[in-house]
Design a protein around this nucleic acid. Sequence first.
DNA 1: AGGAGTTTGTGAACGGGAGAACAAAACGAG
DNA 2: CTCGTTTTGTTCTCCCGTTCACAAACTCCT
Lengths: 224, 224
Amino acid sequence: MKEHTVTARSNDSARDIPEATVARLPVYLRALVALAEQQISTCSSEELAAAAGVNSAKLRKDLSYLGSYGTRGVGYDVDYLRYQIAREIGVTQDWPVVIVGIGNLGHALANFSGFRSRGFRVVGLLDADPDMKDQTVAGLQVRPFDDLPEIATENGVAIGVIAVPAVAAQDVADALVAAGITSILNFAPTVLSVPERVDVRKVDLSIELQILAYHEQRKAVQTL
Amino acid sequence: MKEHTVTARSNDSARDIPEATVARLPVYLRALVALAEQQISTCSSEELAAAAGVNSAKLRKDLSYLGSYGTRGVGYDVDYLRYQIAREIGVTQDWPVVIVGIGNLGHALANFSGFRSRGFRVVGLLDADPDMKDQTVAGLQVRPFDDLPEIATENGVAIGVIAVPAVAAQDVADALVAAGITSILNFAPTVLSVPERVDVRKVDLSIELQILAYHEQRKAVQTL
DNA sequence: AGGAGTTTGTGAACGGGAGAACAAAACGAG
DNA sequence: CTCGTTTTGTTCTCCCGTTCACAAACTCCT
């Protein structure tokens, strides 16, 4: 195989990758890690697409937004592509993260192993309930919610996770924004209003279930 | 206000609602419930759109797929619209659900109050670990994974939730399908392969975080 | 009853993403 | 060195979804 000629627009990072593509890059990354673990060093777009559960044409188009990291007639070098995607996403560095709300869900999130292994590091567990203060979860002491500004500035935290009940979510979001956080992952079933510059993504169990219910209902009607 | 003339194509349910609209209907439903709790009986598309965090034109177009449930010059009757959306989604009835994998996440899911209040009822908690067998979570006894077929057929379960580690997810999915389940909500970070007729939705924490990281990185670069 | 003021429902324009299909590039065999 | 094979990168077309903008429909006031 020839050396990787860097056709890549290496660091003039102004090109815009479509949002739909950005959402799939982590999937590709995970598939590549799995292939690497199986000692597979090269793969075709067809193979990688199968592992990621997408169409191969779509995969190639997605990758083409990053640059030209494959070799025609051969395929992709697993480790090389993996690094390039990781770099593009930004998970070659470690992102400090705070989790607010250490209830059942917060517990589960704090213990989630995928954090550490994928470029994220939990630097703070916060809960408003003073009874939680002395508890240790996942090797980290739970701290009072008021410590947020301190923790955030100390660690340069940019990403916050909201795992509190719906009624408290907006207040927490406001506090996160005030503490300088610019990306929020919201597990509370509420619409958050935040300044333009802040990114919010939501994960909502009951919405997902309701979508499933809709399709389930249609299946039921159709088979009548 | 005039009586609601049913322009609605009441039960010839074959019309297809765009997927993007289906995904927003639960959000509208939640917003309507919130309005109803505030004793608000009527709202305009503008108000409802604000509560749901979307554009009002989009809201109106979405609702128009269900029928014509508003009154020009007036707005929407909150309770009436709420019922119509609930009926369309299929959450006027109760959907039995099984949860597989009672680890940290499964625990959190089992205790999630939004299940009950939104048309879903947990009828089974399953875990392969025999040590879990005697435990009671959220008022329900954890049962061995092998009981799945029995529980599923007994309760007519159509929806299953996977909250097991990634390596076990595909096996669990296969078992769910074999037990007659046709909708799966997957929390494991894996691509599941299932028969065509089975719907799968995935919730993936680390993907969401990576998407945030990407945007975060871009912000950082832009401000240099 | 009629006109002014609101607000819905929808037609039409527009933009972005998905997939097919193909040209360009690399490799290997002879 | 040339030809055939493989597989990428990209162009083109189609479809879905978003948004604008406006006519239709309803209320209220005079």
